[in-house]
């Protein structure tokens, strides 16, 4: 559209409506996708679906093993990635100063965050499954997901540690607390809301990830009894149901379950974080 020959007033009006349209389009897209999945998926929802075992490769029956598998791999990912990510952030923000090391570490985290998930899947297969001999199992999948969640948690922790006022640190050091005591008892509690949000982001990434677990976690239809058993988390189940044409109805149900879990976690943590901030800041 050549606006040069249109008066500024009119072009202003036209462009303003274009921007509004773009905003509404984004909202519309979200509503359509989420609405469609939920509307189509909810009919499949029942107690038997959520708490039942799949029958006939998932054509019938429920998704309990998939829910359990999702919880297992996600927990492993978060348990491994959180301490690494938070401590790395503490090192960068509180100990390292600005130097070559920090730049290198940051570039490393950036690179890690940008590696496509299927490449993580390849690595998980070559390293955890084959090289370490763990086989296709919950542990291999969970560890692969941990690598993906690490940069997310690290970055969020860095940002929130950075946002802790210097005066808190000074107040603590001036009392004769050591650097670590200051970090552990003052800086980290103050940064906790942001770190928690980061952990949840990392967790969400682990819950929804498919490509990275495609060849690391196996595809078993039963509840894994140990972390060395194969499993089939929800997204993987959805992928198999949908592409192998096993059951459209159960695919919708699985998709809806996935969305509800992600939504639920986000909402619950947001409320928790808000409460924590309220208590901390005395509002």
């Amino acid at each position: 559209m050549n606006l040069r020959f249109i008066s500024p007033k009119i072009s202003q009006k036209i462009m303003k409506s274009v921007f509004w349209a773009a905003g509404f389009l984004a909202i519309l897209i979200l509503l359509i996708i989420v609405g469609y999945i939920l509307i189509m998926g909810l009919p499949a929802f029942s107690l038997e679906f959520i708490l039942g075992d799949p029958i006939d490769s998932g054509a019938e029956g429920g998704i309990l093993p998939m829910i359990v598998s999702t919880i297992y791999v996600t927990l492993i990912a978060v348990i491994v990635a959180t301490p690494l990510g938070v401590l790395a952030a503490v090192y960068i923000e509180e100990y390292a100063g600005e130097g070559k090391i920090v730049k290198t570490i940051r570039f490393g985290a950036e690179t890690l965050a940008s590696i496509p998930s299927i490449v993580f899947g390849l690595f998980g297969l070559a390293f955890f499954v084959v090289f370490l001999g763990l086989g296709w199992c919950v542990l291999s999948g969970g560890l692969t997901l941990a690598l993906m969640a690490l940069p997310t948690i690290m970055r969020a922790s860095e940002v929130s540690i950075q946002a802790v006022p210097r005066s808190y640190r000074e107040g603590s050091l001036a009392i004769g607390a050591t650097k670590w005591q200051t970090v552990y008892k003052v800086v980290l509690p103050a940064a906790l809301p942001g770190i928690t949000t980061g952990i949840i982001l990392g967790m969400a990434r682990a819950i929804e990830e498919t490509a990275a677990i495609l060849y690391t976690v196996g595809a078993a239809l039963t509840i894994p009894e140990s972390i060395f058993d194969p499993a089939r988390p929800l997204p993987l189940h959805l992928y198999i149901l949908a592409t192998e044409g096993i059951s459209l109805e159960n695919a919708f149900g699985t998709a809806a379950a996935l969305i509800i879990i992600l939504l639920g976690i986000t909402i619950v943590t947001n409320i928790m974080v808000e409460r924590y901030i309220k208590r901390m800041m005395g509002r």
Binding site: P165, S167, Y168, E170, G171, S172, L173, A174, I175, G176, A177, T178, V186, P189, A190, M280, M281
Partner: peptide, 20 residues
């Protein structure tokens, strides 16, 4: 240095209580 700061306390320009 930690021992020094234990013996010499400090109160700052802007009140800086911890968010506790």
């Amino acid at each position: 240095v930690v021992e020094v700061r234990k013996r010499i306390g400090m109160v700052f320009q802007k009140p800086n209580p911890f968010p506790k």
